[in-house]
C-alpha cells in the first residue's frame, strides 16, 4: 500500500496551478484534502505522475455571502466548515445537517467541498446536495472559465465528471434558500461515517399548507447523484400531507434503477429510497 512514484508541486498562485495542469494534462492530479485521492494512490488505483497541491492557492477557501441571492462555496472549504457554518437561513441548515454525514471527524477536518464534487462518489452527500439545489459549478483552466449546472457536471458513471484534466473546480454557487423553504436530509449507512447505501436530500418551498416546489436528490442509487423528478412532481402543487409525502416517496422508489453490491441489493436500495425520501421530506416539512 505504497503509492507509485510521483512528482509533488505546490503552486502559490492560481496561474501557476493552471499552468501546471495545462502542462501535464491527464498525467497530473489536483490534490485538495487528499481524503479520496491519497487512499486511491496507496492502492495504486490512481497513479498521477504529478500532484498539484492547491493548498496554497489563494482564495479557494472562501464562503462568499456577498450576493443576496446565492452563496458561493470555494472549492477548498472543508466539510467541517460547512457543518459548522454561519450561512443564514435554510441553506445553512441543510449544509450543516448534510455535512455531519460526510465520513468521520478527521476526514471532515481535511476533506474539501470541491474535492468531494470533483471525486464524484455516487454516494457522496455534497454531490446530491449540489444536484438537488441546481448548483452552478465554476470551473477554470488556463484557457478560461466556464459554469456548469450540477446535474450536467456529474456523468452517470461513478467517479466521472465533465471536468477536463486541465480544469480546476473553483467554487460552487448555491441558491440561498429563502425562509419559505424547508430542508431535510436522511441517510442510511451500515455504520456511522460510512458512505451511504442510500441518501436523500430534500428542499421544499411552502406556500401556506401546500408545497410550491420540491427538490429531491438521491445518492447511492446510480452512477452519480440523481434528481427524483417524479417524486418532485408528485409533491409540487399538492397539500403537504402524509399522503402526498408517501406518494412522492413511492414515486422516488419507482423511478430509480439502483444496482446492488455486498452492502445492499437493488431491491433493498429501492426500499431504502422510499424510507429516506419520506424521512427527508418529513424533516423538510416539519
Amino acid at each position: 500500500m505504497k503509492p507509485a512514484a510521483f512528482d509533488y508541486r505546490a503552486p502559490r498562485t492560481l496561474e501557476e496551478a493552471l499552468g501546471l495542469l495545462r502542462e501535464h494534462q491527464d498525467e497530473a492530479k489536483v490534490l485538495a484534502g487528499g481524503q479520496s485521492l491519497v487512499p486511491a494512490m496507496n492502492f495504486r488505483l490512481a497513479r498521477p505522475a504529478v500532484l498539484v497541491d492547491i493548498a496554497r492557492v489563494p482564495g479557494l477557501d472562501r464562503i462568499d455571502l456577498d450576493d443576496p441571492g446565492s452563496v458561493t462555496v470555494g472549492a477548498r472549504v472543508r466539510h467541517l466548515d460547512l457543518e459548522h457554518n454561519t450561512i443564514p437561513g435554510p441553506l445553512g441548515v441543510l449544509l450543516a445537517r448534510t455535512g455531519r454525514w460526510v465520513g468521520h471527524y478527521p476526514i471532515r477536518v481535511r476533506g474539501t467541498f470541491g474535492g468531494s464534487l470533483a471525486h464524484a462518489d455516487p454516494a457522496a452527500e455534497w454531490c446530491a446536495l449540489a444536484c438537488a439545489l441546481d448548483a452552478e459549478i465554476h470551473c477554470r483552466s488556463a484557457n478560461g472559465a466556464r459554469v456548469v449546472e450540477a446535474c450536467d457536471f456529474f456523468e452517470q458513471m461513478a467517479f466521472t465528471t465533465c471536468l477536463a484534466p486541465d480544469e480546476l473546480l473553483m467554487g460552487v454557487r448555491l441558491p440561498s434558500l429563502g425562509d419559505s423553504w424547508g430542508v431535510g436530509m436522511a441517510e442510511f449507512a451500515r455504520r456511522w461515517g460510512d458512505f451511504a447505501i442510500v441518501l436523500a436530500i430534500a428542499a421544499v418551498e411552502r406556500d401556506g399548507d401546500s408545497v410550491a416546489r420540491a427538490r429531491i436528490a438521491l445518492g447511492g442509487v446510480a452512477g452519480g447523484p440523481v434528481r427524483a423528478a417524479h417524486a418532485e412532481a408528485a409533491l409540487s402543487g399538492r397539500a403537504a400531507t402524509p399522503e402526498s409525502v408517501a406518494a412522492a416517496a413511492a414515486a422516488a422508489a419507482e423511478e430509480v434503477d439502483p444496482t446492488g453490491d455486498i452492502h445492499g441489493s437493488a431491491d433493498y436500495r429501492r426500499d431504502l429510497v422510499r424510507t429516506m425520501v419520506t424521512r427527508a421530506l418529513n424533516q423538510a416539512l416539519a
Partner: peptide
C-alpha cells in the same frame, strides 16, 4: 452484525478493505 468475509462465485474475496470489511466503531 457487520463483519463478513464473503466471496463471489469464482472465489474472489469481497471484503478486502475497511470499506467492505465492516468493523463496528464506538458509534455502533
Amino acid at each position: 452484525l457487520f463483519e463478513d468475509f464473503s466471496y463471489d462465485e469464482i472465489g474472489q474475496p469481497q471484503a478486502t478493505t475497511f470499506m467492505d470489511y465492516l468493523m463496528p466503531t464506538a458509534a455502533e
